[in-house]
Amino acid sequence: MDAQTLIARRIALELKDGMLVNLGIGIPTLVAGYVPAGINVFFQSENGLIGTGPIPEGALVQARLTDAGGRPVTAIPGACTFDSSISFGLIRGGHVDMTVLGGMQVDAQGLLANWMIPGKMVPGMGGAMDLVTGARRVVVAMQHTAKGKAKIVERCDLPLTSARPVDLVVTELAVIAQQGGRLRLIETAPGVSVEQVLAATEAKLDVAAGVTTMAIS
């Protein structure tokens, strides 16, 4: 199983029946494909859609039906559309139960940097600032390292997305919870040891008693 699929499948286990969930660009979009059986979740997109379905194939692609990143999506029966001001009102009003966002860095306090690399052209902030600040729960989906360099760092050297820490970080190596302004290792991926996770992480992690193996939906 590739890293992105493993991350998405693990995060899907965080979904609860009836949730309103926002999925960010990249790995987070894959989560919609692994919703556990018997769970009904409403996926929300910043550009004004509740009821996002799986990524369409072939003739099912419609140019005017996209997610916030401009990629084609499907709409499940009962989906509704509205303008982006209402969409951001839902986010800022605290009505989104969980958001899943990509990350460039997460620091030792759980602060996220995911929108800008100085000197490089990137898509920009989008709704990330609003989502990290307004969603009830924030989950980061990202690979543990980039080009051999740790992405879970002592202190972010990229611009922060929000002053609010995230709640959970899921990588291909581990599940790490933010508790009281500190990061705690609670699960390791199948075949990965605690020592391997710590060696790939710049930030100091608390290690939970009885770290378990990551479950996969």
Rank of each mutant, 00 (worst) to 15 (best):
C80F: 03
C80Q: 13
C80R: 15
C80P: 00
T81F: 02
F82H: 12
F82V: 06
F82M: 10
F82A: 04
D83G: 05
D83T: 02
D83S: 06
D83L: 10
S84N: 08
S84C: 06
S84W: 11
S84R: 15
S85K: 14
S85L: 15
S85E: 14
I86M: 13
I86T: 15
S87L: 05
S87R: 04
S87G: 12
S87I: 05
F88I: 07
F88S: 07
F88K: 10
F88M: 14
G89K: 05
G89N: 14
G89H: 10
G89P: 09
L90K: 03
I91R: 02
I91E: 01
I91V: 15
I91Q: 01
R92D: 12
R92F: 07
R92N: 13
R92K: 15
R92A: 09
G93D: 08
G93V: 11
G93M: 08
G93S: 08
G93R: 02
G93N: 03
G94A: 13
G94L: 13
G94P: 05
G94K: 07
H95S: 13
H95W: 09
H95I: 10
H95R: 15
V96L: 11
V96N: 04
V96Q: 06
V96M: 10
V96W: 03
D97P: 02
D97G: 09
D97E: 13
D97M: 12
M98R: 15
M98F: 11
M98Q: 10
M98L: 15
M98T: 00
T99R: 05
T99N: 10
T99A: 14
T99M: 12
T99D: 00
T99I: 08
V100I: 14
V100F: 02
V100Q: 01
V100D: 01
L101Y: 04
L101E: 02
L101Q: 02
L101S: 02
G102I: 02
G102N: 05
G102S: 14
G103F: 04
G103W: 05
G103S: 11
M104T: 04
M104K: 12
M104C: 07
M104V: 03
M104W: 08
M104Q: 12
M104H: 11
Q105F: 07
Q105V: 08
Q105I: 08
Q105G: 06
V106Q: 04
V106W: 00
V106M: 06
V106E: 00
V106I: 13
D107T: 07
D107W: 10
A108V: 06
A108K: 02
Q109W: 09
Q109C: 12
Q109M: 11
Q109L: 12
G110H: 09
G110F: 09
G110K: 09
G110N: 07
L111D: 00
L111I: 15
L112Q: 09
L112F: 02
L112R: 13
L112S: 06
L112N: 08
L112E: 00
A113M: 11
A113L: 08
A113D: 01
A113H: 09
A113N: 06
N114W: 04
N114Y: 07
N114C: 15
N114H: 09
N114G: 15
W115E: 01
W115N: 05
W115L: 03
W115K: 04
W115S: 10
W115M: 05
W115P: 01
M116W: 11
M116I: 08
M116F: 11
M116N: 12
M116H: 13
M116C: 14
M116G: 00
I117M: 11
I117T: 14
I117C: 08
I117Q: 12
